[in-house]
Design a protein around this nucleic acid. Structure first.
Lengths: 249, 249
DNA sequence: CGAGACTTTGACCGTAGTCAATTTATGTGG
DNA sequence: CCACATAAATTGACTACGGTCAAAGTCTCG
C-alpha cells in the first residue's frame, strides 16, 4: 500500500494538516498527494453522478461508495445495467450522454481523477490497470445479460451476489466471508429484471435453505463453491489486473 | 458509392480479371482494391468466426451476412448478446478470448480487414467511423439489456425488429419497408430470453393484430411510429456516423 | 421422395407479477 | 429518549405471462 489509500476517512481533515508528520516526503510526492486530494469529488446517495468542474472526457476512479448505470423507461420501468464499486473506473465522457443511460450514486460516493493517479506514479501501470478495469466492466455486462436473460430468479440473485463477493474481495472489502451491500431490494429487483416482491421471496427462500445470510446490509454466502455451480457463476479469468486494488479503500 | 461495395458477388471472379476494363485506375488504386479482395474472409453459416491468417488484434468489417455474439451455459442454455450486420465492425481480438463469449456466423459471412480499408482511403475517416460503430455496438448492448430485463415478450420482439430495421436501413438493406431476416425462431428466442414456443406465439399474435408481416424470412413492420412507442423503442441519436455505410453491400 | 430442420398448435404447469395490507427499520424533530 | 413520518421489508391472495411437453404440420434440400 502506497499510503494513499483512502479508507474510512469520514473526517473532514484537510490535506495540509494531514502532512504534519510527513516531513520525509519529497516535494514532488507532496504535490502528488495534494493533487490527489484536490481531485476528490463527492456525490450524495441517490444523486446523479456527472462530471464535476472540468467536465469532458474525464476518467475517474471510485474510492468509496457504490454507484450504478441505469436507464428509466418512459413508463417508469427501470433497468440497472451494472454496479460500480470502489476501484472501478468510470468514463464520465461516454456515460451520461443521452437520456439513455445515467450514472447514479447508490451511496455517498467519492471519486478521484484518473489523470491525477497517472501523474502520481509513472502512469503506464495505472493506465494499464484502468484499461483492464474497463475491459472487465464490459465482460460483466455480458454476465449480467445472461443473468437476466437466461437464469431463474434464484440463480440471478446468487450469481449477482457471487460476482459482488469476488469484486469486493479483490479490493479487500470482504471480511470473514461477509460484505456490506448497500442495496435496497428495489435496486436488486431493477438490476435483475424481477419484481421487488419476488426478490423478497427469493431471498427468504435462500435464507431458509441456508444458502446465505443477509441481515442489516451484510451478506454472507455459504458454500460458495456449491453456489457457483448452481448459479452458473464463473469466476472471472485469473490472470487479470488487480493493479488498481492498491489504490482503493 | 466508391465501387468497392461488395454486394451480391456470389461469383468466384478473381480480382485480376475484374480489372480488365479499369485501365484508368492508378496503380495505387488497383493495389488497394487487390488488398481489399485479398483481405476478404468467408465463414460458413453456423460456424464459429475466428481470426483467420493474421490472427491477433485484428479488426474486421462485415461486408455481407449476419453474425451474433453468444454464450452457452454448461447446461445448454444459450444467450445471444448482439447481432452483427453488414457494416458492423468486429474486434476479433477481444471477442473470442475465453469460452465466455463466442462469435457465430448466422449466415454465410464475408468480412474485410479494417486495416486494409484504412489504407485504401486516407484512414482517419474510416478509423473514426469504426470508432463510432464500436461505440454504437456498446450502446446496443444496453438496449438489449433493457429488452430482456424489463420488456414483455411482445415488446421485446417488436423492439428488436425495430432496431434491426433501423440498422439495416442505414446500410441500404431495407427495400420498401421490408427486410430479410435470416433468423430462426430459436435464435430469436435465445436473443430475447424467451422460449421458442413463446416466440412463435408472440409472432402469431403480432401477425393477427396486423402489426407486422413475416413470411419466408422477410419482415415488414406496419405503423413503425406506433410500434416504437408501444415497444419503448428509441431511435438512436441522429448525428451519428453513417460513414461506413458506403463500404457495405 | 425421404430426412431433418423449422414452425405451429394444444394442454397443462409454474414462475414471477400485481395489488394490497402489515410489519419492521430508519430517521428526524421536539 | 420518545413520538411521529417515511422508507423498506414482508406476507397473503390472486393472476397471468411465459415455460414445458408432446404431437402434427411445413419447408428444404439432397
Amino acid at each position: 500500500m502506497s499510503g494513499i489509500g483512502a479508507g474510512e476517512h469520514r473526517s473532514d481533515a484537510r490535506p495540509a494538516s494531514a502532512f504534519a508528520g510527513l516531513g520525509a516526503l519529497r516535494a514532488a510526492d507532496i504535490n502528488s498527494v495534494r493533487a490527489f486530494w484536490r481531485s476528490v469529488e463527492r456525490y450524495p446517495a441517490g444523486g446523479n453522478v456527472c462530471a464535476g468542474r472540468s467536465a469532458v472526457g474525464k476518467r475517474v476512479i471510485i474510492v468509496s461508495g457504490w454507484a450504478c448505470e441505469t436507464r428509466i423507461l418512459p413508463d417508469g420501468r427501470r433497468q440497472i445495467f451494472s454496479f460500480l464499486l470502489p476501484g472501478d473506473a468510470i468514463d464520465l465522457a461516454r456515460e451520461l450522454d443521452l437520456g439513455c443511460r445515467a450514472l447514479v450514486a447508490l451511496t455517498r460516493l467519492e471519486t478521484v481523477d484518473a489523470g491525477v493517479l497517472m501523474g502520481a506514479d509513472g502512469g503506464e501501470a495505472v493506465s494499464k490497470a484502468i484499461q483492464v478495469a474497463i475491459q472487465q466492466r464490459e465482460d460483466r455486462l455480458f454476465d449480467h445479460m445472461v443473468r437476466i436473460g437466461r437464469l431463474t430468479a434464484k440463480e440471478r440473485v446468487l450469481n449477482l451476489l457471487l460476482e459482488l463477493y469476488d469484486r469486493l474481495d479483490a479490493v479487500g472489502l470482504v471480511k470473514e466471508g461477509a460484505f456490506r451491500i448497500p442495496l435496497t431490494q428495489e435496486v436488486f429487483a431493477d438490476a435483475l429484471g424481477l419484481s421487488i416482491v419476488h426478490i423478497n421471496r427469493t431471498l427468504q427462500q435462500l435464507r431458509r435453505e441456508g444458502l446465505l445470510t443477509l441481515k442489516s446490509g451484510t451478506v454472507t454466502l455459504h458454500h460458495r463453491d456449491r453456489l457457483s455451480a448452481f448459479a452458473c457463476y464463473q469466476t472471472p479469468g485469473s490472470g487479470n489486473g488487480p493493479l488498481l486494488d492498491e489504490l482503493v479503500a
